[in-house]
Amino acid sequence: MIAVAATGLTAGAFAQSNVTIYGSMDAGVAYINNIGGNSAVRLDQGTMQPDRIGFRGVEDLGGGLKANFQLETGFFVDTGAMTNAGRLFNRASTVGLSGNFGAVTLGNMPDIVFDYAGKLSNGFQLTNFYLFHPGNLDTLANTYQFNNAIRYTSPTFSGLTVSGMVGLGEVAGDSGRGRNVSAGANYVQGPLRLALAYSKQNDRPAGFAGTFLGSLGLGNGGTVFDSLTTIAAGAGYAIGNVRMHALYTQSKIELPTISPTQKNVDIGTSWRYTPANALNVGYSHSRLEGARYNQISVGNAYSLSKRTEIYAQAAYQRAGGTARFAIQNNTGVSSSDSQLVTTVGVHHSF
């Protein structure tokens, strides 16, 4: 009888909840003309959208109050491996409450620079992972989430939403060590979108940014930043079948002996010239002290259905100033001041 009663309670709980399983799988054949002096052909994953699977749920508690959760993990479709072998849900693991007061979310989640401003970047708008900035110092590629995070998001007033969050460092006797903070505002009204965001991460491993800094003689793959502070501002506008966007980000690295600053500008447009075809064109300029990087990109996505599309993309970067080597996001360092990446692939969402 106890078992039957427990089963009934469980079924009732599920009946009151709305749980969604979602995900994305993307693979393409990429040609890179120069990695360390040699060309490469490889099967790339997540170029158009990151490979991921997730679970999202909402329960109506009554009186306008809702409980919600999200679990999301990233993986590599070409090998089946997780993007972070030490974390099952490496992209998001959150639980929270929402209502007329806004929303409070607890757990592991991306910062507000990615959530608000990142969605106006070339990498996001033009659906090409290689278009995120060298070293991904501004975290627009969503490769660094905040652990132990608490986020508050306001209700939306006349299109305006504001958010603030803190990732607790949880180091006894040193509350600043490993602590992350972020804040931002997002405005959406009709065809117009505006975003402003701030983020500061303490004691963050450099990761791929270490390779980037190493190409400039400023660091190596083992670098840990004392702090990394990013500000971002962007805008987007749609006119008929044409969507335009622009974004500015600035990231300052604090290391024991140097404090370089990277500045990035993106502009781009997406034109859906037929119901099935979208043409994406973009330009970005990145500067880190005396190093300069200019990148142009073009791509076309063809929708086979609402969930499946095939695509062809190309991104070309030219380094200048004190930068001797081109290095597009996640490609590897070129042996010259230029680098070309072309990709043809298929993307499916569910």
Results as ranks from 00 to 15, higher is better:
residue 1 M to N: 13
residue 2 I to R: 08
residue 2 I to T: 02
residue 2 I to E: 12
residue 3 A to Y: 12
residue 3 A to C: 04
residue 4 V to E: 15
residue 4 V to T: 14
residue 4 V to W: 07
residue 5 A to L: 11
residue 5 A to D: 11
residue 5 A to P: 00
residue 5 A to I: 14
residue 6 A to G: 06
residue 6 A to C: 11
residue 6 A to V: 08
residue 6 A to W: 11
residue 7 T to Y: 10
residue 7 T to G: 12
residue 7 T to A: 12
residue 8 G to E: 14
residue 8 G to F: 01
residue 8 G to Q: 13
residue 8 G to K: 10
residue 9 L to M: 04
residue 9 L to H: 14
residue 9 L to Q: 12
residue 9 L to C: 09
residue 9 L to I: 15
residue 9 L to K: 12
residue 10 T to G: 07
residue 10 T to P: 01
residue 11 A to W: 12
residue 12 G to C: 06
residue 13 A to F: 14
residue 13 A to M: 09
residue 13 A to G: 06
residue 13 A to D: 04
residue 14 F to G: 03
residue 14 F to C: 04
residue 14 F to Q: 06
residue 14 F to K: 12
residue 15 A to C: 03
residue 15 A to N: 02
residue 18 N to P: 01
residue 19 V to S: 02
residue 19 V to D: 02
residue 19 V to R: 01
residue 19 V to Q: 05
residue 19 V to N: 05
residue 19 V to L: 12
residue 20 T to F: 01
residue 20 T to I: 09
residue 20 T to Q: 05
residue 20 T to E: 12
residue 21 I to R: 04
residue 21 I to E: 01
residue 21 I to M: 14
residue 22 Y to F: 15
residue 22 Y to H: 03
residue 22 Y to M: 08
residue 22 Y to I: 02
residue 22 Y to D: 11
residue 23 G to A: 04
residue 23 G to D: 15
residue 23 G to Y: 01
residue 23 G to P: 04
residue 23 G to R: 00
residue 24 S to F: 06
residue 25 M to H: 01
residue 26 D to L: 09
residue 26 D to W: 07
residue 26 D to S: 06
residue 26 D to M: 04
residue 27 A to R: 01
residue 28 G to Q: 08
residue 29 V to F: 14
residue 29 V to C: 00
residue 29 V to E: 06
residue 29 V to I: 13
residue 30 A to T: 13
residue 31 Y to F: 13
residue 32 I to A: 02
residue 32 I to Q: 04
residue 32 I to C: 02
residue 32 I to D: 00
residue 33 N to G: 10
residue 33 N to F: 10
residue 34 N to P: 10
residue 34 N to S: 07
residue 35 I to H: 03
residue 35 I to L: 12
residue 35 I to S: 05
residue 36 G to C: 08
residue 37 G to S: 08
residue 37 G to P: 00
residue 38 N to L: 15
residue 38 N to E: 14
residue 38 N to K: 15
residue 38 N to M: 10
residue 39 S to R: 07
residue 40 A to N: 13
residue 40 A to W: 02
residue 40 A to L: 07
residue 40 A to T: 14
residue 40 A to P: 00
residue 41 V to D: 08
residue 41 V to R: 02
residue 41 V to P: 03
residue 43 L to A: 12
residue 44 D to E: 10
residue 44 D to N: 13
residue 45 Q to A: 15
residue 45 Q to W: 07
residue 46 G to L: 08
residue 46 G to C: 05
residue 46 G to A: 03
residue 47 T to P: 07
residue 47 T to L: 06
residue 47 T to V: 15
residue 48 M to F: 08
residue 48 M to S: 15
residue 48 M to C: 03
residue 49 Q to C: 01
residue 50 P to K: 06
residue 50 P to C: 00
residue 51 D to N: 15
residue 51 D to P: 03
residue 52 R to K: 15
residue 52 R to C: 06
residue 52 R to N: 14
residue 53 I to N: 05
residue 53 I to Y: 03
residue 53 I to D: 05
residue 53 I to F: 04
residue 54 G to P: 01
residue 54 G to Y: 06
residue 55 F to A: 02
residue 55 F to L: 11
residue 56 R to E: 14
residue 56 R to T: 03
residue 56 R to L: 05
residue 57 G to I: 09
residue 57 G to W: 07
residue 57 G to Q: 06
residue 58 V to Y: 11
residue 59 E to L: 03
residue 59 E to Y: 07
residue 61 L to H: 08
residue 61 L to I: 01
